[in-house]
């Protein structure tokens, strides 16, 4: 884990509702610069709502600060600050080619120029399989390849903070391990990562800390080294 300085992300009292249902209740969360932390919890606990609320996809009350500054409630404006979210279900543009998807990842630098070429080269080095499929329709690739594309597209924005929502969903264990190893590698190079994952053992292998979300509340913050002694988490994940 890289050496950390102040907080890159601070979430305070984040509350989100879908009609009458409160999906997220007064969530507080800190992420230090260069840290990789996990958000764990059962299906429907509010993890995805937390991620969506942070980036402004879901309207919510409360404060989200990025490097001390309040984030706007607009996903495009949040992306422009240097935060990239790989959403649940990947959100790739299926009918478009892999290259077009990657270019749109670099939309904020107009998808061209030296900087674009440098980012593209980096992503294709991280995910060599994408290089062979540049002209292929993104939707025709396997689930694992689509997830690699989703992560690669997020990296094309050269984010300072990468959020991932359930990257293992629907993937074979081997592919999941490959993607998580890439995340760990990115984190070692200094990228801050917030990872939402239902498969806790996978996330805990690479995260330094974890928050557990239950019924829309962040119920616990844990040090991943102490995880085996944590009864509540064990009840959810290790039974």
């Amino acid at each position: 884990m890289s050496i950390t300085t102040g907080n890159i992300l601070e979430v305070r009292g984040l509350t989100a509702r879908y009609g009458e249902v409160t999906a997220l209740r007064s969530a507080d969360l800190d992420l230090k610069e260069g840290e990789l932390i996990a958000v764990l919890g059962p299906n429907g606990a509010g993890k995805s709502t937390l991620m969506r609320s942070i980036v402004g996809l879901t309207s919510a009350s409360g404060d989200v600060r990025f490097r001390g500054e309040l984030l706007p409630r607009n996903a495009a404006a949040v992306a422009a600050r240097g935060i990239a979210l790989v959403p649940e279900g990947r959100g790739i543009f299926g009918p478009m080619s892999v290259e077009e998807n990657l270019q749109l990842g670099a939309y904020m630098i107009n998808g061209r120029g030296e900087d674009y070429e440098r980012r593209l080269s980096r992503v294709l080095t991280l995910f060599p399989r994408l290089k062979e499929r540049l002209s292929q329709a993104a939707g025709s690739m396997s689930g694992g390849e689509q997830q690699m594309l989703a992560v690669g597209r997020a990296l094309m924005a050269d984010p300072k903070l990468l959020l991932l929502d359930e990257p293992s969903l629907g993937l074979a264990p081997k592919v999941t391990a490959e993607i998580l190893e890439t995340l760990a590698e990115l984190n070692r190079s200094g990228l801050s990562v917030l990872l939402v994952e239902q498969k806790a053992p996978l996330a805990l292998k690479i995260a330094s800390r974890a928050y557990v979300v239950v019924n829309g509340r962040i119920s616990t913050e844990i040090d991943t080294k102490e995880i085996t002694s944590h009864d509540q988490l064990a009840r959810y994940y290790f039974q």
Binding site: P95, Q103, L104, M108
Partner: peptide
């Protein structure tokens, strides 16, 4: 790029917003 961005909006508006 703008044309591709419009197509991206057509395919998945939220994912398009996430690209900025």
């Amino acid at each position: 790029l703008v044309g591709r961005a419009m197509r991206a909006c057509a395919i998945n508006r939220e994912a398009a917003a996430l690209q900025g």
